[in-house]
Design a protein around this nucleic acid. Structure first.
Lengths: 255, 255
DNA sequence: CGACCGATTGACACAGCTCAAATGAAGTGG
DNA sequence: CCACTTCATTTGAGCTGTGTCAATCGGTCG
């Protein structure tokens, strides 16, 4: 049961993304996932052997170094998310994946993924859709970084986190475990660590959130969403159980 | 010949992205592209009939409104680029596409695209790869908006523009036509219009670029790239003629 | 107990924003 | 061909959000 979690996470995610046949689910279950714990600062993907990863517990992120020492987190992964998919078609475009806090990660060799997608165009579609969903989130981050001030950015980030976590059942009642450093918050929101601290304090002072070392609890969702100018539109496809189908790869299997 | 341009643009782009058979090229040539001119502020995609667009000449962008009236450009499209692909699998996730300056745009109904992808997994792969390339650019923008100051952001944007334009043969010798408003620059870089003006003047004063109403000429590439902290790594797959193949959809056609 | 790391606080500097006004360029219509 | 409008660029002045630097505090671990 414990060893089944990676698969249930993956299923839980993909099931919202596409209608999967039992054959598809079977293929997913046969993926050779290698689960392991990674400590807060550790490297996830060995440079010599690029691969996909599936977040099982905790958080992972892709980040870039810019200028001297400055770090910017460019994407965020919660349990059930697949990171590094792009490396499948874009060799060498590693995202510098790392955990945010301690995390449980399953690695998935590209080759196995490849073979699976070969056998199911429907799954290929599902994974393509995943990458569109990820891109939608990237665009929202761009809007946030470009046009919102620090308080709103952090509020927005928190809102996104809850919505995504609740969608996969890792958060309940606007409350979840989060072992981030305030530096992590800073690097995600494009602000300095000192200012991240002040912003978090402000959110606490306004009684919008409770946030200690390992746990975050939203006290006033409406106000937080308002300050963060948060609308879950861009997460619709992330959250929605089964989206309407426009383009169905499977049709040409009927030939 | 004039009517052939949209197809050659599209071919020019995809040819760098994947190895296309002549059958694939034939399929592409059969796409029902509707070419038209759009004025600077006009709408590109009618809300009642979402579709893909192919930029033939000029620029297009996806943007978001955030807060009161503030606009953030989230993605940028140059000739040969396909915008709105995500709508194919994510209905309703319109990007609010609009031209930047006057542009020549070809519209492409989702249904036609759908049918084409049904007939060629290789093309489906090529388009999937395109969306990964787009996402790589989004990540770089996040880094820029989060961690670079205004001067560097604008410099970086200019560098990206030249590289992309030169890749499709629309710019030569670090020089190209660009009918943007300084407000457009501001909205792309997440700064105010007034500051965008000051930054552009600074770039002129440093003799890095010449930039009048309709034309931009880079005077000192090295210095510009240095100020913008620009490295074309993230554009490798955009530029590179034919990338090494890791995952090839076509293999399962051999069965 | 000492070392270390992250959170916190204060003081100060500055990049970039807002407001407001002036200038210039490009139509538009009489 | 000349007012007149409109829109983009430019300039100045003051304000503010955020960064930097530096010190302190608190917890954790060996």
């Amino acid at each position: 049961m414990e060893s089944g979690r990676p698969y249930s996470r993956l299923l839980n995610r993909l099931d919202r993304t596409a209608v999967l046949t039992s054959a598809d689910k079977q293929l997913l279950a046969e993926l050779p996932l290698t689960v392991r714990n990674v400590a807060a600062g550790a490297a996830i993907v060995p440079a010599e052997e690029p691969q996909c990863i599936l977040v099982v517990n905790g958080f992972a992120c892709g980040s870039k170094r810019v200028g001297v020492g400055r770090r910017q987190i460019t994407s965020l992964f919660v349990p059930g998310d697949i990171a590094g998919l792009n490396g499948l078609l874009l060799p060498g475009s590693d995202d510098n994946l790392s955990p945010l806090g301690p995390a449980v990660i399953a690695s998935l060799p590209y080759q196995a993924l490849e073979e699976m997608l070969d056998h199911s165009p429907r799954l290929a579609q599902a994974f393509w859709r995943q990458s569109f969903i990820e891109a939608a989130i990237l665009r929202e981050w761009i809007a946030s970084l470009g046009r919102r001030e620090a308080l709103a950015r952090v509020a927005h980030l928190i809102c996104e986190l809850v919505v995504r976590l609740q969608a996969v059942g890792v958060a309940k009642d606007h409350s979840f475990t989060i072992c981030w450093t305030q530096m992590d918050v800073a690097d995600a929101c494009g602000i300095s660590a000192v200012h991240a601290n002040r912003v978090v304090q402000e959110l606490r002072r306004l009684e919008l959130v409770e946030w200690d070392a390992k746990h975050l609890q939203i006290r006033n969702w409406d106000a937080l969403a308002k300050i963060g100018e948060f609308s879950d539109d861009y997460l619709q496809h992330y959250v929605r159980p089964v989206p309407p189908v426009r383009y169905d790869f499977d049709r040409h299997l009927a030939c």
